[in-house]
């Protein structure tokens, strides 16, 4: 029993079963809504590899990453400031809380009004929405530095900058990463939504257009691609996180 439980193949069982069931159950399907997996894969290959690769996949990913990185950098910088300067934090607390409460997608019409439907509008929107989780987690993180470390950095007369870079930010990093992971999810959603609401290219655009024009194979292939992409991005993030926070995980495991 135990050896079965520990087998590394166990977690693979369900995905294989799902795919196999899907494949055989849908084989030769005549349903308009549920084409056979084989047809979906053919559409996938035809659409994404590599007909729309440069024209749609790459712009989607570039916009997403650009907005995301801007948000992370800005969120960490502003978060450090608000987290360590109390009067600033008090001053902007209501504005920040309200801005964060707005459902991000509700801003899409405004972004379209102000920036049109170009790349800039999308990047600004992604950046705006991803900003808040990083910001709030950074504020929280840099404020809760171990008091012992605060004593050390004061008694050894570390400068403000040294404290920020060597003590406060590293110590807040686990929490900042938690915020960044939430933001990555936001970035992905916003990326797709902006493409679905007003766009000339992108994976979301192609997928929704396929639905509207009843090319159902393509729609399915788009959903498949988005699913894979979302999971891959998240997996990549977790990998980077575990590498960067090796000290965090290992020091926790040791005690």
């Amino acid at each position: 029993m135990n050896t079965v439980l520990r087998s590394p193949f166990l977690p693979l069982l369900v995905p294989i079963a799902i795919i196999a069931t899907w494949w055989f159950a849908s084989a030769g399907s005549t349903s308009v809504f549920f084409p056979s997996l084989q047809d979906i894969l053919i559409a996938f290959q035809e659409t994404w590899l590599f007909a729309h690769f440069w024209s749609d996949i790459v712009p989607s990913v570039v916009r997403l990453i650009a907005g995301y990185i801007i948000a992370c950098l800005a969120g960490i910088a502003v978060g450090l400031l608000l987290g360590r300067v109390r009067s600033l934090d008090a001053a902007f607390q209501p504005s920040v809380q309200f801005a964060r409460a707005i459902p991000a997608v509700a801003l899409i019409p405004v972004a379209i009004l102000l920036f049109g439907i170009g790349d800039v509008a999308k990047i600004v929107l992604i950046a705006f929405c991803c900003f808040f989780p990083v910001l709030l987690n950074t504020i929280d993180g840099v404020r809760n530095v171990e008091s012992g470390l605060e004593d050390v950095s004061r008694s050894f007369r570390l400068t403000r900058w040294q404290r920020a870079v060597s003590v406060q930010l590293p110590s807040a990093m686990p929490q900042i990463f938690a915020g960044m992971q939430t933001s990555l999810g936001f970035a992905f959603i916003l990326g797709i939504v902006t493409e679905m609401t007003g766009s000339a290219n992108g994976i979301g655009f192609i997928t929704l257009e396929a639905q509207q024009s009843f090319t159902i194979d393509t729609m399915w292939s788009g959903m498949l691609l988005l699913g894979i992409l979302g999971s891959l991005l998240n997996a990549l993030f977790v990998l980077i996180e575990h590498r960067s926070l090796r000290w965090h995980y290992q020091s926790k495991a040791g005690h």
Binding site: I192, T207, G227, S231
Partner: peptide
């Protein structure tokens, strides 16, 4: 768990067209 970990990051917007 593996399957769930794969499906979790997929935003629901993806299912919208269907």
């Amino acid at each position: 768990q593996g399957t769930l970990e794969f499906l979790r990051p997929v935003p629901v917007i993806v299912y919208l067209p269907l």
